[in-house]
Amino acid sequence: MALIDWSEHYSMGVELFDKEHLELIAILNQLHEALEAGDHYRLESLCYRLMEHTIQHFRHEEMYFDDWAYPQKEAHRNAHKQLRREVFALQSKLLADPDEEAMNALSTFLKEWLTRHILTFDRDYGEFLRTKGLR
């Protein structure tokens, strides 16, 4: 069962970011499946893949912050920094000792953070970019 199902509700209306969010959700769903199956080998590779994709996605968003003079860029950047810190800590704990509590904590945190972030920060950012003509 998927942890998060994509819906248009999550769309920013900017193709690049929507594609990257779809990929993030796909990785999270695969990570959730690996957690449920206790597949520690796959879990480790998915954790690294998630971090690589997240860092790349944040880099893309932050490039657009500067290119389009996004007025809320500092708050959005700070949210990205906070996520990186929290995910690195949770992943480190999980990879060091893949117990059920650590697995559930990572899954729950990522689902809640991603949906909350997309529906607040990214939605506002998408509206701003669309006013600039980006789709």
Rank of each mutant, 00 (worst) to 15 (best):
L35F: 07
N104Q: 15
P71S: 10
L129D: 01
Q91N: 07
D99R: 14
F121S: 13
E44Q: 13
E8W: 12
Q72A: 15
H80M: 11
L46W: 05
H76N: 12
E8I: 10
L31C: 07
H9Y: 11
D124W: 00
K132V: 00
T131F: 06
D122I: 00
R130T: 07
I27Q: 02
Q30F: 02
L46E: 02
M103G: 15
L94Y: 00
R59V: 04
Y125G: 01
D66C: 05
L106G: 02
L95S: 03
L24Y: 06
A37Q: 11
R49H: 10
G133C: 13
L35M: 12
V87G: 02
K93E: 07
G126R: 09
L95T: 05
E62M: 09
L35R: 00
H9R: 14
L119A: 05
L46F: 13
L134W: 04
E36I: 05
H53C: 07
I55P: 01
Q72N: 15
S92D: 15
P98I: 00
T115G: 02
M63N: 12
Q82M: 11
Y48L: 10
L110V: 04
K132D: 04
L22Y: 06
M1S: 14
S7Q: 12
E36G: 09
Q82P: 01
G126N: 08
V87W: 04
D99N: 15
T54H: 01
A79K: 10
I55N: 10
H21Y: 10
M1C: 05
L43C: 05
T120D: 12
L134V: 12
Q30T: 08
L134I: 08
A34V: 01
L110P: 00
L114I: 11
S92F: 08
E44A: 13
Q82C: 03
T120S: 14
A26W: 07
F88G: 00
W6R: 07
H9C: 03
L134F: 06
L106S: 01
E23C: 04
F17Y: 08
R84M: 13
H60W: 07
E112I: 00
D39N: 15
Q56D: 11
I118A: 04
Q91K: 07
E100S: 10
F128I: 02
L119D: 10
L28V: 03
M51R: 14
I27H: 04
H60L: 11
M1V: 05
H80Y: 08
Q56H: 15
Y48T: 13
E74Q: 13
F58C: 08
E15I: 11
D66W: 09
G38S: 07
K111F: 03
T54R: 00
Y10V: 00
A96Q: 12
A105L: 15
L114N: 02
R116A: 13
E20I: 01
H32R: 09
L83S: 01
W6N: 02
D97C: 06
V14L: 00
E52L: 08
H117N: 05
K111S: 12
A105V: 04
G126V: 02
S107D: 12
T120V: 10
D18V: 04
A75Y: 07
H53D: 07
L46G: 03
T120I: 11
K132E: 06
A96N: 15
A96D: 12
L24E: 09
E52N: 08
L46T: 02
R130H: 10
E61D: 09
R85D: 05
I4H: 03
D67Q: 15
W6S: 01
E52D: 14
F109P: 03
A89L: 09
L28C: 14
Q30E: 14
D97M: 11
Q56E: 10
